[in-house]
Simulated assay, not measured.
Amino acid sequence: MQEISSPYPSRATLIGYARVSTGDQDLRIQRDELLAAGCSRLFSEKITGTHAARPELARMLDHLRKGDVVIVSRLDRLARSTRDLLEISEQLLSMGVGLRSLAEPWADTTSPAGRMVLTVFAGIAEFERSLIIERTHKGRTAAKMRGVRFGRRPTLSPEQVALARHLIDDERNSTAHVASLLGVHRATLYRALARTSA
């Protein structure tokens, strides 16, 4: 039986990424775990997972080279959500970089089994997304049938639009002056007048 060679060399460069959510938490435990796992370079930051900008993560991604393996103590240190995890792992795979979690041994994209698990996760996430879209569509359709209106409420009431038209047409006020009286932008008043005259 032919042995399948791994794209990751046995002496791959291990790069660690550590993150804690607040300034009160300490990065030392994660750093110690990553150094004990053999990481030769560490990227770490103190920033909440919901924060979109993670500069150290971006620096690590720029630093990575084909054949490297990213090590994290837990997956939730790397990603904010399942979708985020899948996007990061797909990005790493496209770069030829592996991903391994110390706390979740099944999350190891350097092995065929780990790649298969993440593929299954991606399928589940896609299925969940399609269910959410379907439920949202059905809910909107049912609400519309009940007379619910979607979108932003008009800034000006029909009475205010009628008053504005009277002030402009009969009293010869400028549109800018009437918009100022009603406390709206001139463009807002133009749109409201156009809607009622259509």
Rank of each mutant, 00 (worst) to 15 (best):
R149F: 00
I29D: 06
L181N: 08
E128Y: 05
Q25F: 02
R59A: 15
D24Y: 09
L193R: 14
G49Q: 08
L193A: 15
V70F: 12
A12M: 02
R54S: 07
S130L: 15
R129P: 12
M1S: 14
G183P: 06
D76Q: 09
S101I: 07
L34F: 01
L78V: 08
E159N: 10
A143Y: 04
V72P: 09
E134H: 08
L35C: 12
V161T: 13
S130I: 07
S81K: 07
L61G: 04
G98S: 11
T196G: 08
A179Y: 01
T109G: 08
W106L: 11
A125D: 14
V20A: 10
G139H: 04
P7E: 14
A164Q: 11
H166V: 00
L78I: 11
S180L: 05
R195L: 13
G23Q: 14
D170T: 08
D108H: 06
M145R: 14
V178I: 03
D84E: 05
R65P: 02
A58N: 09
L193T: 04
S94M: 15
G67M: 11
C39M: 06
G123W: 06
S89P: 02
R115M: 14
L61E: 14
L61A: 13
L92R: 07
V161Q: 04
E33Y: 06
R140T: 15
E104C: 02
R80D: 13
R11K: 12
R74I: 01
L27M: 11
E128N: 03
V20H: 02
R172T: 07
F121E: 10
P7Q: 11
G139S: 13
A107K: 05
I168D: 07
M60W: 05
S21G: 04
G23W: 10
A103F: 01
G38I: 06
V69D: 08
T48L: 05
V69H: 05
M1Q: 12
L131W: 05
M60G: 01
L27I: 14
E126I: 00
H51F: 09
T188F: 00
Y8A: 15
F121K: 06
E159G: 13
L85D: 03
T119V: 02
L27Q: 13
H51D: 10
T136C: 04
G23P: 09
P112K: 11
R28I: 08
L131G: 03
V161N: 03
Y8E: 13
D170H: 15
A187Y: 03
L27R: 01
P7A: 04
M116I: 01
A164H: 05
E171A: 11
S10N: 06
L34Q: 02
A194N: 12
S73G: 07
I15D: 01
M1N: 06
R59Y: 01
A79V: 07
R153V: 07
L92E: 15
S157P: 03
K144R: 15
L86D: 00
R59D: 15
A164K: 10
M95S: 10
D32H: 02
R100Y: 03
L182Q: 07
A12S: 13
R41T: 11
L85S: 07
A58H: 10
L75G: 00
P7N: 14
A187T: 11
S6G: 13
